[in-house]
Design a protein around this nucleic acid. Structure first.
Lengths: 194, 194
DNA sequence: GACACCTTACTAACCAGTAAGTAAAGTGAT
DNA sequence: ATCACTTTACTTACTGGTTAGTAAGGTGTC
């Protein structure tokens, strides 16, 4: 993970793109450097040149998620909570429609006990950021927008996040489940269909 | 998986117990026959004697879950829906308190694309049975018991199941999340704290 | 000529799975 | 009741494949 040139940056990005796809479809333990190198058309050691240990690749992957998610939040910051909720739903749909990917949080927590500590730490921070966003939507929805629900915004945010994380996984068994859960969350928040 | 004697039955059971623990803490791809044999104090091939392929072990594991869950449902069949809900919550808590295990459905769906087809089929049936139970609680809760919520019982059941599946996974990052989610589900169902 | 970016070639560990052998327990005929 | 035979539940010893990771060398570019 040393280099600076443009060629390297491009290769690094392509490695991360392939690894991300593999992570969200197969999990961290179920993909290897061979999967990446053959998809990229290079030799095994070339991947190790850019990411010496698999742990480095995993950390880089989660860090990129965190940067991307921060941009996503910023891009949706000026919207109302109802639109933010729909943006969240669209993100969820996008995962599923791309080869039945699941939420990165779902992979990282499920494989948590088998992951290197460096990845665990990065994953914990990432997941906290995502949960916080769900809570923010619930809070703003009650304070400013047209949401009405029992319990605290924090608790409602946790349920929304957990239900969508679980829903993305269950959608692999029954594709319809995701739409059902999205609509039920709208109903629980007393939000009109959009 | 051929034998019938008592000694074999006992060894088989112990293999399944160890494998179950490993499955729910590490996942199917992250445990090996070595883990089992060393925990059991026998050689590798002894495990292969009872379960020739890892696929056989996986199928046996899910089938045992299905039998156990069927008994669980039957044991709770005569109870009211509010008590059934609390029984479901206790089951969830039991998983978490045993080495931060997660819901088998969470493992099986997350690793779904890497599992042998025989396990996928068994997993699909098992997960359908669990989802159906959650829906039954929601339906009976509305029809007979003291539950009140927007949307259909089916949709509410899916959200409950998905939220608890996700919640068990997220509890590895933040142990408090599980209690928060359980209470919020009670609130969403307009159930009094028990 | 130094450095970035790769390749070839390798290691040691681990994986699922198998073949052959063995001790002990059970079974059946006499 | 004993002997012959079979079966059960393993063991030792192995195979072929995959894993992450490394060391050394080559090639093109600045």
């Amino acid at each position: 993970m040393k280099p600076v040139s443009n060629a390297t940056k491009d290769t690094q990005k392509r490695i991360l793109d392939i690894a991300e796809q593999l992570l969200l479809t197969r999990g961290f333990n179920a993909f290897s450097y061979q999967h990446i190198s053959s998809a990229l058309g290079v030799r095994n050691a070339a991947v190790h040149y850019h990411f010496p240990r698999k742990t480095d690749l995993g950390v880089a992957l989660v860090q990129r998620y965190r940067r991307r998610f921060a941009r996503f939040i910023e891009a949706h910051a000026s919207l109302g909570p109802l639109q933010q909720l729909e943006g969240y739903f669209e993100l969820t749909d996008a995962y599923f429609h791309q080869d039945e990917q699941i939420c990165p949080s779902g992979i990282l927590t499920t494989e948590y006990h088998t992951l290197p500590e460096e990845i665990q730490l990065e994953a914990g921070a990432f997941i906290t950021e995502m949960r916080d966003w769900a809570k923010t939507i619930a809070r703003r929805g009650r304070d400013e927008g047209g949401m009405s629900y029992p319990g605290s915004p924090e608790a409602m945010g946790e349920v929304m996040f957990a239900a969508l994380q679980g829903g993305l996984q269950l959608a692999r068994i029954d594709a319809g489940i995701l739409d059902t859960i999205k609509q039920q969350i709208r109903d629980l928040l007393k939000v009109e269909k959009s």
